[in-house]
Structures are given as C-alpha cells and as structure tokens.
Design a protein around this nucleic acid. Structure first.
Lengths: 141, 141
DNA sequence: GTCGGTAATGGTAATCATTCTCATTTGCGT
DNA sequence: ACGCAAATGAGAATGATTACCATTACCGAC
C-alpha cells in the first residue's frame, strides 16, 4: 500500500504537506523523529510547511494508525512509522541512539500480568534507558 | 528511617515545605501524584507552598532517590515514593487508576535484551495502558 | 477542464507544564 | 541570639504543543 492509498484509507485528503511528512518517515534513515525534527528536515529540503501543520498532521497520522507516538524521557513526543510489527525500545542516554527489540516472553508476561488483575490491555510501552557501548556511541546527545 | 533522617542523608536541609511534601507521599492514600496534585493538596490543607518550590523539591527528591518520576501518557510528570522495591505499572485509561506489579521474568528478559545488544542499563519503564474491569472502574478520568 | 464548497494550511497568539530570576525569608551552626 | 548560606515564593521566561482564523488547495460535480 503506497502513501496515497494510506491517506485515503485513513479518510485523509491527499495534500502536499501530508505526503511530504509521510515520505520523511518512509524513506528516512532515521525512524524516530520529533515534530521539531520533521519541521526542520522539511525546511532543509526546501519544502516549507508550517510548524502547526506538522503537529496537526503527526497527530492525525497517529490517530489513523500510520504513526506511533512515543514518550521517551524528556518532554517532546517522538514518532515512528507503524509497520505493524510491535517492538520495544532501548534508548542510549548518551547519544540518543534508539534500538528496537522484540521479546515474545516479555509480551506474553505483560498480557498475563494485566489479565490476572482484571485489566483489558490497550497497549503498552517499554523503554530501556541505557548507555550504548563505545565505539558505537559517539557520546554526544 | 524517618523523613528528617531521609533529608539529612540526602544532604538536604530540613525545611517546612520539604517535610510537608514528604508527608504527602508518606501517609497518602494516593501513591502517585503530579506536581500540580501536590501543590493543590498542600493548599487544601492550609499549608501554602509556592508552585515553584513544589517543582524544585520534587526534582531534588528524585535526584536524592526519595521519589521516582514517571512519564505516563500525557504531558505531566508523576511521582511516587521510592520504597526500594522496583515495580511496573498498569494505568487505566478510563479512570486513571494505577496498579503496580512485578514480574521477575520480565525483568530478567529486559536485562538480557539490553546486554545482548551491548547496552549497560540505567533503568527502564514499563507502562501497560488498559481498561480496568467494572465495577472497580468508576469510568471517570 | 472549470467552479465551488469544504477541508487543510500556516502564521501567530494562546496554553500548559516546567524552569528561571531575584528579592526576601528561614534553618542551623557558632 | 547572630549571621550567612541555602531555601523559598511570586512572577517572568521558556519550550512544547494547541487554538484561532483568514487564506489556499483538494476534489467531486458540472
């Protein structure tokens, strides 16, 4: 399913700003971007979209299920493309690198923990804050 | 160790505002409070501390290890007394109820996931967002 | 292809949580 | 009791995000 179709499916009109934002997440080497990141990257590539639009579009995409919003430590939201495969995150506190991982055992234990206590799970977030090993880590935030 | 001793140990002067905040978390029926919550509760009980002080004190307590800061969904930080026993949280999206749980298997799998990828863990946060079962849930945020 | 209505955009002001500034007050050792 | 450094509190400042609203761009009907 291409971007245009994605938008249609979500009941969103296919506009230039929206396509540009989707493209960023689609091609991008960086999977995890904040609103400010997206805004700056678009400006840098000559496409000027308003910051307000970026925020609006990101929220719409999240609600449409195209993007996933994360609240890592710190105040700003970070988004990534929802490619259907759930995963958790390890965040390097030194350089900000984000690594994804999936552990079936953790997933099932979580489900069980919630079920045992009478909760019906919507979703969950697991963030591991760590230092990544040099020389991988440039140690610069 | 009582509150006064806690402060001393942390190298913090024992002041009225600090004791009042610690008391809130100590006695409180509610373990999880935001800065605004703390501020309002103090005002309600006739003790007037400034909001700035509340924020400052909460941050100091966090750094001293007396409190733990959480970033549940939404924008504001939530604090709870650090009683030494790590646990994760289930948050009811309907009524805001927070339930704590601990699962040794999840803990060890997390550690392993990070270690396998060359990370040295600082800490981690696992939040399960769910609906709690009626009639427990008053369904009112 | 053009027209028109509606939804989308973007600049700016407003909001919310949090932090900073700085003059005043308080805790605490002497 | 005194004095000074540390703590407080009121309000300004900040940073992220949202609201407002006049202008502009999609898209379906003709």
């Amino acid at each position: 399913m291409d971007h245009l179709t994605h938008l249609k499916t979500a009941g969103l009109k296919s506009t230039l700003p929206r396509l540009k934002v989707l493209n960023l997440f689609g091609n991008g080497n960086e999977r995890h971007l904040s609103a400010e990141d997206v805004y700056k990257k678009l400006l840098a590539s000559g496409d000027d979209v308003g910051l307000a639009t970026v925020y609006r579009v990101l929220t719409q995409f999240e609600q449409a299920g195209l993007l996933i919003r994360h609240h890592f430590e710190g105040d700003k939201s970070v988004f990534e493309l929802n490619e259907g495969k759930h995963h958790d995150h390890i965040v390097c506190l030194q350089c900000g690198r984000i690594e994804e991982f999936y552990d079936a055992t953790i997933e099932s234990r979580q489900k069980k923990a919630a079920a045992d206590r009478g909760y019906s799970v919507h979703d969950h977030s697991l963030y591991i804050y760590a230092d990544c090993i040099k020389p991988k880590c440039p140690n610069k935030p």
